[in-house]
Every structure is written in C-alpha cells, then in structure tokens.
Computed example of a mutant assay.
Amino acid sequence: MTPEELRAARDRVVPDVAASGLDVLFCGINPSLTTAATGHHFAHPGNRFWPVLHRSGFTPRQLLPSEQGELPGLGLGITNVVARATARADELDAEEFRAGGADLAAKVERLAPAWLAVVGITAYRSAFGEPRAGIGPQERLIGGSHVWALPNPSGLNAHWTVATMAEEYARLRAAVLTSRRAS
C-alpha cells in the first residue's frame, strides 16, 4: 500500500461478511486503513486475527484476509462496532462507539448469530456502556444471541500473544460447540 492509497481509504466503509444464523459474528472495533484500501477485514500485516482464528480451531487452515468470503460457509462472519476506517481506534470518540453499539445491536437482532464476539474489550465497554466488563462471556444477550468479549488481535495489543489469544478464542469455540449440542 502506498501512503496515498492509505490516505484515500480514510473514512471508507467496508462491507460486512455476514449472513443470518451464523455460529459467531466477530466484531472488530473499526476498519484499519489497510482493510479499507483492500476491502478485506483484518488486513493489516500486523493484525493477528487470521492466525488466531486458525490456531483456536475456528478454521481448518489459516485463511488470508482475501479469503474472508469463506467464513459464512464455516458459520462465521465479520462486522465492526464503528463502520468508518481510521488509522487508529483512538481516533473514534465516545459518541461513535455508543451509536455503533446501537447499530450493532440492531444488526445482531436481525442476523441472529448464536454468538456475537467483540474483539476488543475497550470497544465492548464503550459500545455497550459496561465499564467493568472483562474478557470472556458476558451477561448480556442481544435478542437471542450470547455475547463474548475477546482480546483485540491488533499488533498494537502487546498484552496478548498469538498463543494466549488463541486460547481465549478456543474458549469461545468450545462454548459454540456446547451450545450446538444443546440445541
């Protein structure tokens, strides 16, 4: 990507990869400029979403961002709390997060995934007004969808390694499999 291509991607909206009745709808904070420039979610080379998704058992192999279209066939999808692309999530304000949370709740009610997985605890807290929420399953239901907060796979999140994130994502996968067996 050239600096010009990245600048031109600012404020673009990247279409969701979603369908009704998914097992998990993963929800990022907002698209990066690389994601907006390519049209592929979690496309920044430093983002660890795709390796973590595979290592946690959600995908049979590590997909490339350009293969995001394979996710619905695996019962998975991707959306964002805030639709517009920025260079960094700290460019978003509290009102954008609150409005994004309301939009996300409406989308989840419409699409009815078994689980909404918000990748970024700060984004979850801001979007849903739950400042004490922690990583893991949440008490909140949206429609009939369960909610799980996951670590942010951004390379800027140095508190989590690929291995520790994969363990947490695998906890969600186990919950998905358990809820499937219970239905």
Rank of each mutant, 00 (worst) to 15 (best):
H159K: 15
T164G: 10
I142F: 02
P151H: 12
E168K: 10
P151C: 08
V147N: 02
K107T: 03
L172D: 01
A166E: 08
G100Y: 03
Y124L: 08
G129P: 04
V147G: 02
L104S: 09
A106W: 15
A170V: 11
N152F: 14
Y124D: 01
F97N: 08
G134P: 01
K107C: 04
Q138R: 05
S154Q: 06
P131F: 10
W115I: 00
E139M: 07
P151G: 02
N157D: 13
Q138K: 07
P137W: 00
S145I: 02
E109Y: 09
R140Y: 00
E96I: 00
D103K: 03
A105F: 00
A105R: 05
L172V: 10
Q138G: 01
H146I: 01
G100I: 10
H159T: 10
V108R: 07
P153D: 14
S154H: 03
G143F: 02
A163W: 14
I121P: 01
L141S: 11
A106S: 07
W148E: 06
E168F: 13
P151E: 09
A163M: 09
R125V: 03
R140G: 00
H159M: 15
L104D: 05
R110W: 01
I135N: 00
E168H: 13
R171N: 12
A112I: 07
I142R: 04
Y124T: 00
E109V: 04
I142P: 14
A102N: 11
E167I: 05
R110E: 10
L141C: 09
W160A: 15
A114T: 15
E95A: 06
A170E: 15
A99S: 11
A127E: 14
L172F: 03
L116V: 09
T164F: 05
I135A: 05
L116D: 02
A170C: 13
T122Q: 14
A170F: 15
A123E: 08
Y124H: 13
G144C: 06
V118E: 11
A158S: 15
A133N: 11
G120H: 11
I121A: 11
L116R: 03
I121D: 14
G155L: 11
P137D: 00
P137H: 03
D103T: 05
G100R: 13
N157S: 10
Y169Q: 04
I135S: 02
I121K: 07
V162A: 11
W160H: 15
Y124K: 03
R98P: 07
E130Y: 09
R140I: 01
I121C: 08
